[in-house]
Design a binder for these strands. Structure first.
Lengths: 222, 222
DNA sequence: GCATAATACGAGCGGTTACTCGTATTTGCA
DNA sequence: TGCAAATACGAGTAACCGCTCGTATTATGC
């Protein structure tokens, strides 16, 4: 049965004519969801907690979202849009083929890490391996966009690399970055944080150098 | 109130004289818990699911464990014991100060990765940042043992490194390894898995080389 | 063989969760 | 001003969670 059957809850299906008040509420709810998610994780972020954090009743929350998953998906979409901007400025800042490696890494890692630190709810949503199917579908676009951009850089800097090697290398680079985000985020001091950023860049630089050495020539073999 | 008050449930407090049957049951439960944890994660691994997987009733499960956390702790302890053996053979196979870097990494990474692949429940228990306090206390010993061993290697191979730099470097190395475990585990084919192992070792080698270059001399400065 | 303790069972308890529903209030539009 | 739609409320509901308890069965010690 596909009739939604609810009396108060619409939130989707036929497009309810949203008022300005409603748009503001949605933004409030998403802000609250990000905050609750950041400090509780996905499972412990109850819908009632999110509603309370947004300063509304549970019923009001469900005027705008049909279920918890839809809230997460909407938040993921909002993150994706913001992150999309950050990606563009990060990856298009310089020609990846000619700029020195250290500078390239600075220009990409710094804004990406800044975004991750500024949005603590982000990794609760994108870095968890155990979320509902629909949810991980919502996070896939941004994952693949990132993968594509890193592959693009590898194509420019290690043109001799086979496509499979390029994809694998990009995956490894992304995974390394993601692994060090929590370390940087939980750093005890600003000094420690800066030192960890240096180490992160050292890891990426080392691996990128290895990839360039393999893929700089035309043969892509070990 | 500290009297346990239960009628059927003892499981701790005065040491119930365990029968051989009980020991077998405990092993069964731990096996079942590892399996359920591996494919569901900690939150979704319900005690009833674990009991069903072990082929017993929920009540029987609580004859041996006072609560869910105790099951996870016991499983963590069992993993710790097994992993302790793997650690010893991995880290004491060769003198870390003299053996070539590539061989050292092979000798450590291979058995560690094999253990992670052979025990899928392991990372569900040890790699999650969002578990009860008592639980993460149970996982801490093995985390710190690993950290200590890696620090020991760094002390041998990069003696010029300051203590803080050594700890930070060891943390980074461990985090990189842990980040690539899921990639290797979910590899589509044996070839892909082997290729990813090569990349993992490349990352570790590259970073280790950088650390050795910094810490090889007696000054530990950038 | 028999008393005692350990093991086994499973319906069910209190608590929490995502979500609903009847109803009251506010807004946009004529 | 009046009215339909959108927004708001919050106690309530079904489902599921970890866990219990009364009771039945099986092993151990003497």
């Amino acid at each position: 049965m596909d009739g939604d059957g609810g009396s108060g809850a619409g939130a989707r299906q036929q497009p309810v004519r949203r008022q300005a008040r409603g748009e503001r509420r949605i933004a409030q709810i998403l802000d609250a969801a990000a905050a609750v998610l950041a400090e509780s994780g996905y499972e412990a972020a109850t819908t009632n907690k999110i509603a309370a954090a947004a300063g509304i009743s549970p019923g009001s929350l469900y005027q705008f979202f049909p279920n918890k998953e839809a809230i997460a998906k909407a938040l993921a979409d909002r993150f994706t849009a913001q992150m999309g901007g950050a990606h563009r400025t990060a990856f298009e800042a310089a020609d990846p083929g000619t700029v020195p490696l250290a500078e390239l890494i600075d220009r990409i890692v710094d804004p990406l890490m800044a975004f991750n630190l500024a949005n603590p709810g982000f990794k609760a949503l994108f870095a968890r391996p155990d979320m509902p199917a629909e949810l991980s579908a919502a996070t896939r676009p941004i994952q693949e966009a990132l993968l594509g951009r890193v592959e693009g850089i590898l194509a420019a800097r290690a043109p001799g690399l086979a496509a499979a090697d390029r994809t694998r290398g990009a995956r490894v680079l992304i995974q390394v970055f993601k692994a060090l985000v929590p370390l940087v985020a939980e750093a005890g001091s600003e000094d420690e944080r800066a030192a960890l950023m240096v180490e992160l860049k050292r890891v990426l630089t080392g691996y990128m150098t290895a990839l360039e050495a393999r893929g700089g020539a035309r043969r892509g073999d070990s």
